[in-house]
């Protein structure tokens, strides 16, 4: 089997009801990169939840471009919400707190920063665009 590149697009408009659709699409797009399905799903859900709850876009329109090429995964996430750079504006979670004091805020962006090697935010016209890049370990590569 030859090395497989991935190049696909997901369009989301339905809010939380899109979550099963995201999972279903990723299991198809990434079927040769099984270990990436959960991390990519997580990054997309966290960003999409932020867009839904804080983006104030009506109607909300999210476009996600997913690419795997030369051992690199690239996720480009765009929404039409108000200008927001999650890389600097999201809360930082305190990971060491006790159960009683622990909060959830900021975990999504913490996951994204932990699971990718590069993150870049741009405001382009009326869109927020976040580009995430992850180098793939050799075990995550497609079978040859």
């Amino acid at each position: 089997m030859s090395h497989t590149n991935v190049d696909c697009t997901l369009t989301l408009t339905k809010g939380l009801n899109d979550l099963p659709y995201i999972a279903e699409q990723l299991s198809m797009f990434l079927k040769e990169y099984e270990s990436l399905i959960n991390p990519v799903n997580l990054m997309i859900e966290e960003l999409y939840s932020n867009s839904i709850y804080y983006g104030s876009a009506n109607p909300l329109n999210v476009n996600i471009h997913l690419k795997i090429n030369n051992g690199m995964l690239e996720v480009i996430y765009e929404d039409n919400g108000k200008p927001f750079n999650p890389l600097i504006e999201a809360d930082s979670p305190d990971l060491e707190q006790s159960i009683e004091d622990r909060q959830i805020g900021g975990l999504g962006i913490h996951f994204i920063k932990s699971m990718t090697d590069q993150q870049n935010y741009q405001r382009i016209n009326s869109l927020n665009q976040l580009t995430l890049v992850k180098k793939l370990a050799s075990t995550a590569h497609a079978k040859h």
């Binding site: 959960n38 997580l42 999504g108």
Partner: peptide
């Protein structure tokens, strides 16, 4: 459990 996100963690918390 196949998958958990921060919203899932919130319910665990």
């Amino acid at each position: 459990l196949d998958y958990i996100s921060s919203e899932g963690l919130r319910s665990v918390l």
